[in-house]
Design a protein around this nucleic acid. Structure first.
Lengths: 336, 336
DNA sequence: AAATAAAATTGAAACGTTTCAATAAAAGGA
DNA sequence: TCCTTTTATTGAAACGTTTCAATTTTATTT
């Protein structure tokens, strides 16, 4: 592999000047030409490691998500990759596997790898490890979930509003007894979505019935018992609002397997769209989040922080969600 | 940040010895203790960049896939991450965005980043850029798709067999006119799957009707015209075999939107399962690939190569696929 | 044309490791 | 105990950059 010294030798220009050229400083026209030619001829590429040793930059950022394979993380990663690539940064992905312990390990891992910055979606409210990173001055952007007591940039969705709109649509369709599969109380988005539910009901003058509020983990396959309880209660809800992708899936699966006609016997409103939801019969109404956009925004903000531009810190971007209607919601008001 | 010199100073042991200790060589018992204490006290962490500068290792591997967001890539990445993490490697993900041009750029990018190795799923048969990487001695493992004329390790699925089994099942269910949505002829897996189709039909004494073979791109939304043509031919097939995830999706969507009852008017056999396929009514029969396993195998093999263990080169692992039955296939033989 | 100011170039030190020849310490043999 | 062998330690050079004080070249002013 050719080094800067080889370029220097071949072009007859000193190493210092070649370095200046490489870093975009001005050099004399004909020197520039000579250097360029030498670089071309040798196919010289800067050794990022040597450079990093001096500059303390790795041109690498880490992204840490609770689960690599879910649509949300995926799209976020895709969005980030696009932006980072333009700036020549590489993206290291880390999977917390829905475990706080793993999350902590991975954060340490990223720190040891000396990434220039981190984008992270925390698995829970626990945040000591996040605080530590921030205190060390490593730029970090939270996504999807805010962390109470941590002063930190973040890009999230307006969950309260997303949830609110879903409930509003259910109400408009004549539903009054609406069950909710809320998420873990130690998850920020879960609390917000529950808030949106409560607020919407209150605003429309419907009293909150605590027995309609069920909790489930936000992971694959979770929530079966929650659905069971809601279905088997004496005065069962006409609609159920599932507050994330996994519990939405669980619901669809549960109803289908038990021969309960979604959109007829029970209405279902989900969260986070998958391509397939629109193909199901009935199609599933969901709250959709601009996931790619979260990734892009987070990447941009992170790059700003990496360049030591801490203007407006901490920035908390709240992106709007949309509601996608579906036949999984029965229009009860037609009947009355 | 504390350096090895700080450790040396605090422990009173020379830098050379501390380095030896860090790299697992033997040092005297009491020196070991002193060093350990100093490291502990300073919270010293090796600077990978400085180390890399000497050793020419980045402890980083790249993965390059045609599309980050599809289930296949996802699961592969998850599998890789798990293995690599154990060995302290970080994983850089690159998205070729289904473009050969981007693929070339990203490969160059990874090379410039001096990754220790690369796992790659090529977008096409074009392979000059891959060859170049191999010639430079950078370990590279192909996944999913082999490249003709490139001598290279690979982890793929047995596509011929996967396809064969699907067709076999269709035949067992009494289907004789079976259409296929084959993939681009410049994609290895596509050709293999078509081969499996042809072989199965031949083995069962069914003559190949070229008009039943349609081609489509392997990307989101592709294949509509292919389905249309198959459906609108005079003597239309009773079943259609879609040879990848995207075209399977297109099929489902197309049929549903046009009110054609899958599993009744037309049978459908897909490729690559998504959680949701089992939830649809009808459930979709598919060929499923062990995607996570591909990632794990590829990562293991890559690590071996990185450690200069080139035994049995080139290794081509062929993993077995499974067939998942579904009600999207009508049993015609019951009728006869 | 000389004197000054501005711009560009140079060469060496530094970044934090590993590695290796030289040296020192410990262990073994007589 | 002294000599030999083995094992550990040391300090400096090297990896490929950037950076900076010192120097040289070029441009500007008189």
């Amino acid at each position: 592999m050719p080094t800067i010294k080889d370029v220097s030798r071949l072009s007859g220009i000193s190493v210092g000047t070649v370095s200046r050229y490489l870093n975009g400083y001005k050099v004399k026209k004909d020197n520039e030409k000579k250097i360029q030619e030498a670089i071309e001829q040798l196919d010289y590429k800067v050794n990022q490691m040597a450079r990093g040793l001096k500059t303390n930059k790795t041109f690498t950022v880490g992204v840490l998500v609770p689960s690599i394979t879910d649509i949300f993380s995926n799209q976020v990663i895709e969005g980030m990759e696009e932006i980072l690539d333009q700036e020549n940064y590489s993206l290291i992905v880390c999977n917390a596997r829905n475990s706080l312990k793993t999350e902590k390990e991975k954060l340490r891992f990223l720190k040891e790898k000396r990434v220039d910055g981190i984008v992270m979606m925390p698995v829970s409210d626990e945040h000591e490890h996040v605080k530590e990173i921030l205190e060390e001055g490593i730029p970090l952007i939270l996504i999807d979930r805010l962390l109470d007591g941590v002063k930190c940039d973040a890009v999230v969705c307006d969950n309260v509003n997303g949830s609110y709109k879903a409930i509003e649509e259910l109400i408009a369709f004549g539903h009054r007894r609406i069950g909710i599969i809320a998420g873990p109380t130690n998850v920020y988005t879960a609390r917000e979505r529950l808030n949106g539910y409560i607020r919407a009901l209150s605003d429309y003058g419907i009293t909150i019935d605590d027995s309609l509020i069920e909790y489930a983990e936000y992971r694959k396959g979770s929530g079966i018992e929650a659905y069971e309880r809601l279905l088997n209660m004496e005065n069962r809800p006409t609609a159920i609002f599932a507050t994330n992708y996994e519990t939405t899936m669980t619901g669809i699966k549960y109803f289908m397997e038990n021969g309960i006609a979604i959109g007829e016997e029970i209405s279902l409103f989900g969260y986070d769209n998958s391509d397939v939801f629109q193909m199901l019969t009935p199609s599933i109404a969901t709250v959709v989040q601009p996931m790619g956009e979260i990734g892009e925004k987070a990447a941009h903000l992170l790059l700003k922080r990496i360049e030591s531009d801490y203007s407006l810190f901490p920035v908390v971007s709240r992106l709007k969600t949309k509601v996608l209607s579906g036949t999984s919601v029965k229009n009860l008001s037609k009947l009355g």
